[in-house]
Design a protein around this nucleic acid. Structure first.
Lengths: 218, 218
DNA sequence: AAACAAGTTGACAATTTGGTCAACTTTTTT
DNA sequence: AAAAAAGTTGACCAAATTGTCAACTTGTTT
């Protein structure tokens, strides 16, 4: 009897098993991210998630055992993406080029993942009580590592002396802002909507301003 | 009969009338600001406000008729302070000095009003649905006015060409960040707590970075 | 096609929550 | 000191909300 056939069938079964489940879990997580990102854990009603995902509430509970579990799942989804853009800060690149690439990547990431970015902000606002310890540890390590890169650049005279902590805060905050304050910024600054071109010019403004400030004077 | 005495008495009465009320309303607003700033309108339970303010729930409802009314009151409290720091941006000052003063003032304001600043962020996250129309209008006017000042500086050759919109976003976001992300930043950047000295050095870093980038090259 | 597993659903119970109220105490006025 | 006004309180109600479940439908395996 074909063990090959068996395993093929088994595989087909597994895929099928997972198809519906995967699709619905995704639906739920997407809807949950959207609502959690605006209202936080306590402010979100499971009914809202159910409605937005198009599933009846009972069905949501078929996949997740509680609201908090959904929330944790959205947070877990978030964590990996945190340091994607950070890769650009590497010691073997030229500071100006690396920092510019980082700013661009981070802004692009915020633009493409507005809800996730807002969710992250909201989780922080609430005191980051659901950010797992290992995620914090990971962030700490990555940050320390990249701070070292900056310090090395400064030591090599390639970058004006700067406290990496505050530089990171400037860059994080600026990119964060575009996701979080989009509505307000559009209102107060009297622009219609922040389009891709605005993000480009934002990246340019930030890069130019920061880089001019940080390149060593000769 | 002494009308002087009458008015003195009346005054005493008015003061007394207002003493208890004013004290309790303040207690409630302070507690509400703290909790709203973390959990938003929907995420906040009136019981939490009551407990934190030290008053029984029934008493809270003696002063406010609904949760939303408390929320609106906290928002109203907030609005006036929004453009305090903005005063520094005035056409008759030198750009470098004025912008530096603005950054300092805005950071100092965030440091002294962390809960209010967070509340503002949270209100924005939720879509600014409770920000009154006149408040939006006011923000729009002030922003446009200050953008004009920047443009005039650029036109006079006192400032490198810059899009005021993105510059404002950089400055707003950096100052906002210190209130909102304090907990996370402390964690990720491995500092204990952001102290006054950190805010000073933040102000210095932002000023130097931004100003170096914006002063015209000769 | 029969048996089984996976997924769907609305009705339902238990708890929480926003808000009310009548009885009560304290403060102010006359 | 008596009356009136302001403030306090916990018990209470109706609505909302979380989470459960048994009956049901759909998909999969043999």
């Amino acid at each position: 009897m074909a063990s090959a056939e068996k395993s093929r069938k088994q595989l087909a079964t597994d895929n099928a098993d997972e198809r519906i489940r995967a699709r619905n879990v995704l639906k739920i997580l997407k809807a949950a991210t959207e609502i959690f990102s605006r209202k936080g854990l306590d402010g979100t009603r499971i009914n809202e998630i159910a409605e937005l995902s198009g599933l009846p509430k009972g069905n949501v509970y078929y996949y997740f055992s509680s609201k908090e579990e959904i929330y944790k799942a959205t947070i877990a989804h978030l964590i990996n993406s945190w340091d994607q853009a950070f890769r650009h800060i590497s010691a073997d690149r030229e500071p100006a080029e690396a920092i510019e690439a980082y700013i661009k990547a981070k802004l692009e990431h915020a633009r493409r993942n507005i809800a996730e970015t807002r969710l992250f902000a909201n989780e922080i606002l609430q005191g980051a009580e659901h950010l797992p310890a290992d995620a914090r540890q990971h962030m700490r390590e990555v940050t320390a590592e990249k701070a070292e890169v900056l310090n090395a650049w400064v030591a090599a005279g390639k970058l004006a002396p700067v406290d990496p902590r505050h530089l990171f805060i400037m860059l994080w905050s600026a990119t964060q802002f575009y996701a979080e304050f989009e509505a307000l910024a559009c209102d107060a600054l009297q622009v219609g909507q922040l389009k891709a071109s605005d993000y480009s010019s934002a990246a340019r403004t930030i890069s130019e301003t920061v880089l001019n400030g940080l390149m060593p004077r000769m």
